[in-house]
């Protein structure tokens, strides 16, 4: 829709879209459907050659299309396939997410150094404090905020996001190029964080507090890993 409003100002627009039925219904002026998973419109991370092919094919529609067009990008994402070289981070038996996240710290730090960045940060709070917060919520049902300007519920949602990003980056260490499914299967099934988040989801959904029900229903476990 944004494409239509911007095109009205005389600016040529092109959408790189992931959900073909939506592109077919909204009919933006120019669209390139890409066969990649949600969240990665340019496809495989760390593959500037293929990313450029996507962007260039999309922008070329500005030059070639004389009427609304929906084109397909034909190349599949090579990173959608599991990597045989990838091995999940090794963690000793732990009893809390604080212990587990501490055990993953060297993996996480290695990935940060190799990429010169981290995607952790939306909670604006150190991981150790977020892990302690998670453990208090899980063990004592205690909902508190670590930032006075936001609610306990929002604090928890941001903590979930940062903890998951931290685990993802730990899994990416060593540049073995796992697929997203490998990472998420490990995180949701094999880590204490994943197991406890799945349990917390059910606990929140059974709560009398509507906001907690909403949090549990929508914002803890993605569709694919719900039980």
């Amino acid at each position: 829709m944004i494409a239509h409003w911007i095109e009205q100002a005389g600016i040529n627009t092109v959408v790189i879209g992931l959900i073909k039925p939506h592109l077919e219904q909204i009919q933006p002026p120019r669209a390139l459907w890409v066969p990649f998973e949600l969240g990665r419109p340019l496809g495989p991370p760390g593959n500037p050659k293929l990313q450029r092919e996507v962007l260039q094919q999309a922008l070329s529609l500005v030059e070639t299309a004389e009427q609304p067009i929906l084109e397909e990008f034909k190349t599949e994402d090579p990173r959608a396939t599991a990597s045989s070289k990838w091995v999940a981070p090794s963690i000793e038996t732990v009893t809390t997410v604080a212990e587990e996240s501490a055990a993953l710290k060297s993996y996480y730090q290695q990935q940060c150094v190799s990429q010169s960045r981290t995607s952790v940060g939306v909670a604006k709070t150190p991981i150790k404090e977020l892990a302690d917060l998670f453990d208090r919520v899980f063990q004592e049902n205690e909902l508190t905020t670590l930032r006075e300007e936001i609610s306990p519920r929002l604090m928890l949602r941001l903590a979930f996001d940062d903890l998951k990003s931290y685990y993802v980056e730990a899994a990416l260490a060593n540049n073995k190029q796992p697929s997203s499914m490998q990472i998420y299967d490990w995180m949701w099934h094999d880590t204490l964080l994943g197991k406890q988040m799945r349990e917390l989801r059910h606990r929140f959904m059974a709560s009398d507090d509507e906001k907690l029900v909403d949090l549990g229903t929508k914002f803890i476990v993605p569709h694919r890993w719900r039980d």
């Binding site: 998973e37 991370p45 990313q51 995607s119 998951k164 990003s165």
Partner: peptide, 27 residues
């Protein structure tokens, strides 16, 4: 950083490479 409300899309690609979501270096 990604601060999207939805948890139902892949974030591993962005964690590895910001250009997989906002390809400003490619552009």
């Amino acid at each position: 950083l990604i601060n999207h409300l939805s948890i139902n899309f892949d974030r591993t690609a962005f964690a590895e490479d910001a250009n997989s979501v906002l390809p400003k270096d490619i552009l």
